[in-house]
């Protein structure tokens, strides 16, 4: 059985593939299923390359799937994705996963493309009672900044590790967490690299947040 069939992947048309920051792209494709914001899909460019996982970064009312991906140097899939043009084909699964947010008050923490599930939640109108602490190195890495500013207002906290961005905390997300009181009642959702997730989780626990209030999605 060919891989695409085995993984139940559907052929989907690419609508758009635009660079939103250096080596970071937003890919819009035909939608294969309904989804809950926070879920992901499997996606590949051809049936020989094993699919990789991507959080859905579009809203539930959009008639396409959007994903944000960063090109990994020497990677098997992302360099291929970066060459896609509107009208090309990709292979996508239906949505799955349980990194969803039914809570009233949640603090979202993300770095890099880990912003994707929270973008989906905001674009789906699920941002009331939510705070986003977002980390990136420089101004250009805060893609989709305007949407978050507009929807979350002062609940959108940007941590810029190079220190070049105005109206932001100068330092990493983990430093921000160390420097501030932790809200012990809120739920926390962490998304991004293993290093950021594990370090942030440790800091929150150290500050008295129960591990049962923290859920994490690691882009392994």
């Amino acid at each position: 059985m060919i891989l695409a069939e085995k993984m139940s992947l559907k052929t989907c048309k690419v609508f758009e593939n635009s660079e939103v920051a250096p080596s970071v792209y937003y890919l819009k494709t035909e939608r294969t299923s309904d989804f809950i914001p926070g879920q992901m899909i499997r996606l590949t460019e051809n049936i020989k390359t094993p699919p990789r996982l991507y959080s859905i970064a579009s809203g539930i009312h959009d008639d396409y799937f959007g994903i944000i991906y960063s090109v990994v140097k020497g990677g098997k899939l992302t360099p291929l994705l970066s060459g896609l043009k509107p009208g090309d084909k990709v292979f996508c699964s239906s949505a799955f996963g349980s990194f969803t947010d039914p809570a009233k008050e949640t603090i979202w923490i993300a770095t890099g493309t880990g912003i994707a599930p929270f973008l989906s939640m905001v674009l789906s109108g699920l941002h009331s009672g939510k705070t986003l602490i977002r980390g990136a190195r420089q101004e250009s890495d805060f893609y989709f900044d305007e949407i978050f500013k507009l929807k979350l207002k002062d609940k959108y906290i940007r941590c810029c590790s190079s220190g070049e961005l105005q109206n932001s905390y100068h330092g990493r997300v983990t430093q921000y967490l160390w420097d501030h009181e932790a809200d012990k009642k809120s739920k926390y959702m962490l998304c991004g690299s293993a290093e950021m997730v594990v370090d942030s989780r440790d800091i929150l626990i150290n500050k008295g947040v129960s591990f049962t209030q923290i859920i994490s999605e690691i882009y392994f």
Binding site: A194, E195, V197, V198, R201, D202, F211, S216, I218, F220
Partner: peptide, 16 residues
Amino acid sequence: GCKMGCLFCMTGKQGF
């Protein structure tokens, strides 16, 4: 190291 970040694991704390 490891990327999986299990809460109870020392290797997970090392990162990958």
